[in-house]
Amino acid sequence: MLASAIKTGLGIGRDAALALIYPQACAVCRASVESHDDLPACAACWSETRLIRELAICSRCGAPLLSSEIISQCQLCSSLTFTAARAVGLYEGALRAAVLDLKRKPYLGTRLRDLLLELARVEPLHRATCIVPVPLHRQRERERGFNQAAIIARAIARRTGWPVREEALIRVVHTQVHRTLMDERARRESVAGAFAVAKRRLIEGENVLLVDDVFTTGATVSACAQALLEAGARAVFILTIARVVRAEAEAGGIR
């Protein structure tokens, strides 16, 4: 109880310092961020960002479904090789700001860490036995200085106790950065054969939680999942911060 009171007091002091001494503007609306836990966005922008837990989704790939749909799967993910995928929310507002911020510096705000942990602990992701971050090619990781997926993996591992297998999966092809307007086929072709399992013993028989920052078409995580499954993983579950809603999905009755 005393430790909790001390922690609360420290948090209040930190937030006061943030507001008065080191004020930071919300990355979305430019208003002042009142709580350090909410960085890089303000509480209002977080409340306006749509979270997946508030939506009807495909039970396999996690894509949002129309509320009127009675099916549980979107039928657009049949070619993807992972077991199941989930994202905290849509790639908008506070979550989009958090993804972009994570590409610049290796930091996850408390609110985002808690949302990721909450998702990791529920069906079906709670079946995971180890965590593997989607790897960057060595050249790109040197340029950035860190792998943002590894930052997510370590944050989840600290709270769940699941081991992180950063050395299990490697990127063997330095592909171009995916452009926003690349379609699903182009993305899939760009990552074909791009990933390989370096240490099979680390993932054989494991239920792998594969983590990344954004799920767009699923091409990258599907290519990773295929390599992991072929190397002996029992299942591969996907966890990302955000999910991009595809134009193809809207045409198929998904938004």
Rank of each mutant, 00 (worst) to 15 (best):
A120T: 00
G232Q: 02
I71S: 15
D114F: 10
D212P: 05
V245F: 00
G205V: 02
E34I: 10
E92Q: 14
C45D: 13
A251Y: 04
D212Q: 07
F146S: 07
L2C: 02
A94T: 10
R201Q: 15
R111Q: 09
A98M: 10
T240V: 01
S67I: 10
V177D: 06
P163S: 10
R158Y: 06
Y22P: 01
S32C: 11
A223K: 04
I151P: 07
D114T: 10
L112P: 11
L136W: 02
E206C: 01
A227R: 03
R50Q: 12
T110V: 13
R179Q: 15
V245L: 07
R179A: 08
R188L: 08
I131C: 02
R113A: 14
C42E: 13
V132Y: 04
V221L: 04
R171N: 00
Q226D: 12
T216P: 01
E92M: 03
T81M: 02
N207W: 03
R30W: 10
L115K: 13
L20S: 05
I71A: 07
P40H: 14
C26P: 13
R104K: 15
A249H: 05
R138M: 06
R140T: 08
G218M: 04
L55C: 09
G161L: 11
A41K: 10
E118W: 07
I151R: 01
H36G: 04
A198E: 10
E34Q: 13
L117I: 03
I203E: 02
C29K: 12
G9A: 02
G205M: 02
E250G: 00
Q176L: 14
R127P: 00
G13Y: 06
R104S: 12
V172Q: 09
E92T: 15
A87W: 06
L181M: 03
S59N: 09
A56L: 10
T160R: 08
V132M: 06
S67D: 13
A227E: 01
R185V: 10
G11C: 00
V208N: 05
Q226T: 06
I12Y: 14
F82L: 01
A249V: 01
D212I: 08
S78F: 11
A43F: 07
I131E: 05
R200C: 01
S35M: 04
V191Q: 01
A27Q: 15
N147Y: 09
A63L: 15
T49F: 04
E123W: 11
R144L: 08
A149Q: 04
D38V: 04
I12G: 12
L39A: 11
A120H: 04
C42S: 12
D37M: 00
S47V: 02
A247V: 08
P23R: 11
V132L: 05
R246M: 05
